[in-house]
Amino acid sequence: MLPMRTATRTDYRERIVDVVAYLAEHLDRVPDLGTLAEVGGFSPFWFHRVFVAAVGESPATISRRMRLERAAWRLRTTRQPLVEIAFDAGFNDQAAFTRAFRNAYGATPGRFRSEHMPAHELPSISEIHFSPTGTPYRICLPRLEPIDMNIEYVTLEPRRYAYLRHVGPYPEIGSTFGKMADIAGPAGLVNDPEALFVGVYHNDPSATPPEELQSDAGITVSDTMVIPDELQIGTLAGGRYAKGVHKGSYSKMGESWMAFWSTLQTTDAKPRMESPFELYINDMETTPEDELITELYAAIE
C-alpha cells in the first residue's frame, strides 16, 4: 500500500480555504500552481486535479471571476477611472475589459456604473466570490465528501486495446462505448475471456474545455486478435501505476476519482506522462449496479 498522511474532510477544507484566501489576497497577479500547492500543503504534482475535483473550478477561473467582481464593485462604489479598473482586472486595454465585462454582466462597464446596477457577484459552482470587506469567503465544497481511498502500487505489462475515439464531456462516453461494442461483438472481441472494457482519458478535465476532451472507449485484445477496420488500436503502457477501486454506479465515478487524486497527492508518487484509464471488471448488463467494480489507474514513476 502507498504511504499516506491521515487526511480528514475538515483538514482538506481548511487547506483549500487557505488557497482561496491566498488567491483573493493576490488578485493583482495570478500565483503559479507551485506556490498555491505550497500554500495549501499539497503535492505540486497533483494539486490542480485535487483542487478542481474539490471546488469544481480551477484557480485561474476563480481568480479571473473575483477580479471581474472587484471591478464591478469598484464601478458601483468608486469614481476610479475605467482604464485603471480595467488594468487592475488584468486587462491590457479597456476594449478587452469592456468585452469581458459585458459577457459576464450583460452590460458595458459604463452602463453598469451609470445605471447603478446592484449585483457584483457572478454565478459560480463553488460560491467563491470577491469580498470587499475581507470577511471569510463563503465556500461551497459539495465534492469534498469522499476523501480517503485505498491505493496500491502495481506493475503492469503493456496491453493492446481496440477503441473508438470519443470527443466531448467524459460522462457522455457511454454512447461511444455502445457503438464500439456493436463493432467488437460481431468481430468476436468480447468472446475472449480475458477481454475487459477500458476507458482511457487523455485530457485533464480541469484544464480542457468539455467539448474538447478526448477519450477512448475500448476493449482489451490479445496480440493475435484480428481487429475490425472500424476500430483503432492503442496500447496501455507498461510500468508502475497507482491503482484504486470504485464500487457501484458509474454515475458516481467522479467522486471516486476525486478521492483517488486527493489520496494520491498525500504520497511521494510522481506522475508519468501516460493517460489515466479505467478497467471495467464486470459486465454492467448482468451485474447489479451497486456491485459494479471499476479499477482506476494513474501512471507513476
Rank of each mutant, 00 (worst) to 15 (best):
F91M: 09
S175V: 14
L231H: 08
W257G: 01
M258L: 13
P171E: 08
A72C: 02
M258A: 15
I147W: 00
S43K: 03
Q265T: 13
I85V: 12
A299E: 04
V83S: 14
E301F: 14
N150K: 12
L141I: 05
A53D: 14
W73E: 03
F112G: 02
S124T: 09
V221N: 05
S126E: 01
P109H: 02
Y137D: 15
M284S: 14
G168S: 08
K243M: 13
A207S: 11
G234S: 04
Y241W: 05
S249H: 12
K247R: 13
G244N: 03
V55W: 02
D28T: 12
P171T: 05
N282D: 15
F260S: 04
F197R: 14
E295V: 02
E14N: 15
E145L: 11
V30H: 13
L189H: 02
P209C: 03
Y161V: 07
F197L: 11
R64T: 10
E127H: 13
G34Q: 11
L213A: 01
E69K: 02
T235Y: 05
G134P: 01
E301K: 10
P193L: 13
G239Y: 05
K243Y: 06
K247T: 15
T208M: 06
M225A: 15
E230W: 04
G254H: 01
T208A: 09
P171Y: 14
Y201P: 00
P136W: 04
Y250A: 10
E25L: 11
D182N: 13
E25G: 15
S175N: 11
R49S: 10
E152L: 12
G185R: 11
P209L: 05
L122H: 05
E289I: 11
M149N: 01
A298E: 06
L36T: 09
F277T: 04
D11S: 09
T266G: 02
W257L: 12
K243P: 07
S63M: 07
M258Y: 10
N203C: 06
M284K: 12
I139R: 03
R74L: 13
R5V: 09
F47Q: 01
T61M: 12
D204H: 02
F101W: 03
D283Q: 04
S275R: 04
A53C: 14
Y280I: 07
